[in-house]
């Protein structure tokens, strides 16, 4: 068992969006701050009590609120953030659907919301409206009233099931 002192820095290794990252941190640092310091500023902070989900990322295949994980706990993990969704400049179908359905306004909840949708659609490729609402209930949005987000997730589920990603202006 490794024991670290209070002010001692810890070296961790993890994968973010497929890239190996080495990061030195105090044990108390939250994963959300670590990711943002590493340049993944699409990961947002909307609260201090784990309610809002603006910090949602995929960690080892699960959606987690990165404000509620210590960076040291992420040692050895694989993380996907919104920055890692578009491939070769081409938007992911969920991103396309958010654009098409006007599912964002200020855009602050959007990265977390999109990652939650990504996880939801992996778990349940053809969710009902109720399942979508339940599925994103850990992600708060102050602007949209949610309806267009629900529509976007529905559209994304169709696109993904059909394997269709129609051409979008990038």
């Amino acid at each position: 068992m490794k024991v670290y002192e209070k002010d001692q820095k810890v070296k961790i290794h993890f994968k973010v969006n497929g890239q190996d990252v080495e990061y030195e941190t105090e044990p108390r640092k939250l994963l959300v701050h670590a990711l943002r310091e590493l340049g993944f500023t699409g990961v947002h902070i909307g609260c201090d009590t784990s309610n809002c989900g603006a910090c949602t990322v995929i960690m080892n295949g699960k959606s987690v609120k990165s404000c509620t994980v210590l960076a040291v706990e992420a040692d050895g993990s694989e993380i996907l953030t919104v920055e890692g969704l578009a491939k070769d400049g081409k938007l992911h179908p969920i991103q396309e659907a958010f654009w098409e359905k006007h599912a964002l306004q200020c855009g602050y909840c959007t990265p977390g919301m999109i990652m939650e949708a990504y996880w939801l659609l992996k778990e349940k490729p053809d969710p009902t409206e109720e399942e979508i609402r339940e599925g994103i209930s850990g992600n708060l949005c102050r602007c949209t009233g949610y309806q267009n987000i629900v529509e976007a997730v529905k559209l994304a589920s169709q696109k993904l099931r059909l394997g269709q990603t129609p051409y979008q202006r990038q």
Partner: peptide, 15 residues
């Protein structure tokens, strides 16, 4: 469709 979205859905906004 919004001209604002492409940056924001990629996490490339600057708040």
């Amino acid at each position: 469709k919004r001209i604002e979205d492409p940056r924001l859905i990629r996490g490339r906004g600057t708040y």
